[in-house]
């Protein structure tokens, strides 16, 4: 965000309070809250390797069956006694759901990050080149991205994984990326077109900067909030598709993921059997992930567009 565009809305406030370092638009409450939610999920991956929790119990038949979470006092002969050893309970295949959460939730996030990152990379290259070169290349990129964006990614992925058994996590992420690039491409193209005629870009051009450095040193920094908002949006889109695939029983099967836990729970009708902790755990974990990403996207939108920030004071 350049200081020039932020100034009009912030000028009165800053005059009253005096400028200080905490006026940075990046200190957006929603953005930071979302960021910390995501960070917590990512940090959970460390619990196993650091020996804080025995994550090998995420495997089948490594724990007693059907234990409710430790804090409940469910008295049902079909379930076991709640055991503090298994805080979130266990499922009917003998997986410790705490271990599944610690291993699976960061894994779901990883898939999304790889997919969205790769999609963003393609988007940066195509969007920049389309906006800058123009002509037939622009028309080509725009047409292709407009038609790919309407193809339901989940549906095509279902076809793929129905044929290819045991998809690798990285392969799955890259397949997801094949549907994640049109969004950033469109966004970047539009931004390049609008920035091309701005004063500072013309200034750079006049002072003899080459195209490459105009694109990456002049334009890219100004698009960071837009890019970041698009990235977080894509991460959650990719996780959504991956989770949907897993919930159909079509995802990678070697590592526990949140979608796979939902699949297992539905497969043995945990819903009918009242084992709410089984299907509830992945839903809560994913809701935290999605909410965190969503808060980041909204926060980044406000960082990028000062007008949205002002609305609170109305």
């Amino acid at each position: 965000m350049s200081a020039a565009t932020a100034a009009p809305t912030g000028s009165q406030d800053s005059a009253r309070r005096g400028l200080n370092t905490w006026d940075s638009p990046w200190l957006n409450f929603k953005f930071l809250l979302g960021l910390s939610m995501i960070a917590i999920i990512l940090l959970m991956a460390g619990a196993g390797p650091l020996g804080l929790y025995d994550t090998t119990r995420a495997r089948v038949a490594s724990a007693p069956l059907n234990l409710p979470p430790a804090w409940t006092n469910i008295d049902n002969p079909f379930f076991g006694e709640p055991d503090p050893e298994y805080p979130l309970g266990t499922d009917s295949d003998g997986r410790d759901l705490t271990a599944v959460l610690l291993v699976g939730a960061p894994r779901s996030l990883h898939i999304g990050l790889i997919a969205a990152g790769a999609g963003m990379l393609i988007g940066v290259v195509l969007g920049f080149s389309a906006g800058f070169i123009g002509g037939w290349w622009d028309a080509f990129v725009r047409t292709i991205s407009d038609s790919i964006i309407t193809i339901p990614a989940l549906a095509v992925l279902i076809v793929i994984s129905a044929f290819v058994k045991n998809l690798d996590v990285v392969i799955l992420a890259l397949l997801l990326a094949a549907f994640a690039w049109p969004g950033p491409t469109r966004l970047l193209r539009a931004q390049v077109l609008s920035m091309r005629e701005r004063g500072y870009v013309q200034m750079a051009r006049l002072s003899g900067a080459n195209t490459f450095s105009i694109l990456f040193r002049e334009m890219l920094p100004n698009m960071l909030p837009y890019l970041a908002a698009s990235l977080t949006g894509n991460v959650s889109g990719a996780i959504l598709a991956a989770t949907g695939l897993e919930a159909l029983g079509l995802g990678p099967t070697r590592i526990p993921t949140m979608g796979m836990t939902i699949y297992h729970a539905m497969y043995v009708s945990a819903l009918f059997r009242g084992m709410w902790w089984w299907w509830g755990m992945p839903i809560v974990a994913l809701v935290i992930v999605f909410t965190g990403l969503f808060l980041m996207t909204v926060g980044l939108d406000e960082i990028a567009n000062p007008r949205l920030r002002g609305i609170r004071e109305q």
């Binding site: 959650s236 989770t243 299907w279 839903i283 809701v287 999605f290 969503f294 909204v298």
Partner: peptide, 22 residues
């Protein structure tokens, strides 16, 4: 309504079934 926006359709569906239907 924004708090619900981040939840995938089908997960909210599971919640609806478990409360409103069961």
């Amino acid at each position: 309504s924004l708090t619900f926006t981040s939840i995938p359709f089908f997960m909210f569906g599971i919640l609806l079934i478990s409360f409103l239907a069961f």
